[in-house]
């Protein structure tokens, strides 16, 4: 049962990863090139910055997108969904979207409050070691907040509180993220990319990651649905080919 779950998670991850790779190739690569052309004060100075031709970078980035999807699909939907499914609120696909939302907040959303995505051409002023430390701290805080949110919701729903009030109360643990904003480094960045472009860029990055999580949840739900149908038909009977 665990193996089947892991296989479904990895398959969903491969589909999500391929789509995210496509997104990287069609949207992100040109956008990164554009913001880089806007910037003059980029940390990779022209002429000595890129050690590889653009096409190799583009291809490697697509491959990176695929690996990213498979990793998230395998870990979050293959392993974590299997383990936490009994505790997740809702039924059927709701459980998957709850987990996807928690995954997005932990891996990206929470950390972005401290360290928002920066376009190429804008350099963080905080050193990379510090940023990785804060990334891990923010991811851990977001994971704790998501877990507490589910616990609070379930406790209240069990005691007979209306679902919408339980859901509202479940939002309270996300106040923990405010601690990060108080303690974390003030995210300053330097570069010549105009503010509106930075904002648009962030929108694209957020949409890309949120889209990846939605695809993971949807494909995973689809695969599980097909498995249930197969089980309902019975292992010894043949399925109609569709």
């Amino acid at each position: 049962m665990f193996r089947a779950s892991l296989r479904r998670g990895l398959t969903a991850g491969a589909v999500g990863g391929l789509l995210f790779g496509l997104f990287t190739a069609l949207v992100a690569n040109p956008l990164v090139g554009y913001t880089e052309s806007l910037a003059h004060a980029h940390e990779h100075a022209p002429g000595q910055g890129h050690v590889m031709p653009e096409t190799v970078t583009a291809a490697a980035s697509v491959a990176g997108g695929v690996v990213w999807g498979v990793l998230l699909g395998g870990v979050v939907f293959g392993v974590l969904y299997y383990l936490t499914e009994p505790a997740l609120p809702g039924a059927g696909s709701t459980k998957r979207y709850v987990l996807a939302a928690a995954g997005f907040l932990t891996v990206s959303g929470g950390p972005w409050l401290l360290l928002p995505p920066q376009p190429a051409g804008v350099a963080h002023t905080t050193p990379v070691g510090t940023r990785i430390g804060w990334y891990l701290a923010a991811a851990a805080t977001a994971a704790v907040a998501c877990t507490l949110a589910v616990v609070v919701f379930r406790r209240l729903a069990q005691t007979g509180v209306a679902v919408r009030f339980a859901a509202l109360a479940g939002l309270l643990p996300f106040g923990l993220l405010a601690i990060l904003l108080v303690l974390g480094p003030s995210g300053t960045a330097v570069g010549d990319v105009p503010g509106t472009v930075v904002l648009a860029y962030r929108g694209v990055v957020v949409a890309g990651q949120a889209g990846l999580w939605v695809v993971l949840a949807a494909v995973h739900g689809r695969l599980s649905h097909r498995r249930k149908q197969r089980l309902a038909v019975g292992p010894n009977e043949t399925l109609p080919t569709d």
Partner: peptide
Amino acid sequence: LHNFRHAAG
């Protein structure tokens, strides 16, 4: 992985 890192934030 330059562009991927930027794309994924």
